[in-house]
Design a protein around this nucleic acid. Structure first.
Lengths: 241, 241
DNA sequence: TCCTAGTTACGTACGCCGTACGTAGTGGGG
DNA sequence: CCCCACTACGTACGGCGTACGTAACTAGGA
């Protein structure tokens, strides 16, 4: 009746299997697990339908019985690793501590899966584990008396800051993958260019900044302080009673 | 003497043309301009060497005389649109106002070039216009008395927040491009799934949030307040004299 | 001045990619 | 029991980035 043009669908609403035909040899979970393993090992660009099928030992096109489109696979991957968040039974009552813990967990997950930060910016929706995550965060924020919209903003900002921080740290390493020279060489050449530019005197402030503070800083500490500052910006610590 | 394996290089250090052969028919600027036009019109995925060459009216492989690798093209594109920042002669002396203006300019640029937010996360380095941007920001922050490292963090956070906000707003629209159904249909189906999940009662906090505050909020205002909050977190406004 | 070497333009080709489509076989519901 | 939805999967198409080879061209050194 309706045109036979494709109907929209969400991967989460699609049932994994129907009851009629032969038993599927694999499961969506298997496929996603292989995809995650490949991405962890060789980068997200190494994840191709052919490669997954090869590692799984099946024909390439068989995968399309489980995953309608490649982009859905990305969503499934993000959801799968989002399941690595571990939440205790109940929020502690200290929303600041809870959110800080969430941020650190998120950071750890993104270190385990260096492709996650990049993919999340594209393939992020209301997947089951995203709902679970959101529900937990909202639970943690119950003691905080601000409008609901602001809470969502806070969650988004914390999440986003984690993503940005890690993405920034990993950008060089990810880019180096597949380049015909090493990451160190790349960094050296880029550093030399930067030094040359600064030496021209066209960037006095930048020169001053590079001259000052060549101290190697601790990434963990910077991260922790950034998150703390962010949380403070939503509810400044009370100064007097 | 050294192995003939590829030497690392930065696109910004590579001279545009040498003196020996015939005059190049195009320029790096031409190529990047075409690439930006294509990306603006049809999305970043539509930017291919073949398409650029076709629109430029030359052979595909000729482009490689100007741009050594596709990834460098992305860097050139980001640098090109980064040149759209317009800075007055001198910072105003009010670092908060200056940074706010920068954030709004950045947002406007990312609206003009919907592909920018996504590409920046991958292809961002110390390009000429990035240095110009950084130098200007540091100039604006001169009145702010915090360590140099913190200033860099502030700039990164402001930039990142702009990116995140815009990327979030654009994610759905970008994803809809190339899908066999419309963005509205997609949104409707996803919304229905979300509603169905919430209706199960498994997400009480989320349900409460959705029930409350169905008021359509103003994106501009949210953005402005987010930036203000962020700036405050680096230097809380003084409350007394 | 002429020669030569470096540069430009670009056609061809290779090995990837996502995925549309057709075919064959299988096993549960009417 | 039998039909048909569903599984598995081979083939093929159009696109991608880009390595490589060739021909034309021109600026610098002899």
């Amino acid at each position: 009746m309706t045109g036979r043009t494709a109907e929209p669908e969400v991967i989460w609403a699609r049932p994994e299997r129907a009851g009629r035909g032969p038993k599927p040899a694999y499961s969506r979970t298997d496929i996603v697990a292989v995809a995650v393993r490949i991405a962890d090992a060789d980068g997200i660009d190494a994840v191709s339908m052919r490669r997954i099928a090869a590692e799984l030992g099946c024909g390439t096109m068989s995968l399309y019985n489980y995953v309608p489109r490649k982009e859905d696979l990305y969503e499934l991957m993000v959801d799968a690793v989002s399941g690595e968040y571990e939440f205790p039974g109940e929020p502690s009552g200290d929303w600041r501590a809870d959110m800080t813990a969430i941020a650190h967990q998120g950071r750890a997950i993104m270190y385990r899966h260096p492709w996650l930060a990049r993919v999340m910016t594209t393939a992020y929706g209301f997947s089951p584990n995203a709902l679970r995550f959101l529900e937990w965060c909202l639970g943690c924020l119950t003691p905080l008396d601000i409008p609901a919209g602001l809470k969502m903003q806070l969650i988004a900002m914390v999440n986003g800051t984690v993503m940005l921080t890690v993405a920034n740290e990993q950008a060089m390493a990810e880019r180096a993958r597949g380049l015909p020279w090493s990451e160190e060489e790349e960094q050296a050449v880029r550093g030399a260019y930067l030094a040359g530019q600064v030496a021209t005197g066209r960037y006095p402030h930048l020169a001053g900044l590079l001259a000052e503070a060549p101290a190697p800083v601790d990434a963990d500490e910077i991260f922790a302080m950034g998150i703390a500052r962010l949380l403070d910006s939503f509810a400044p610590p009370v100064t007097a009673a």
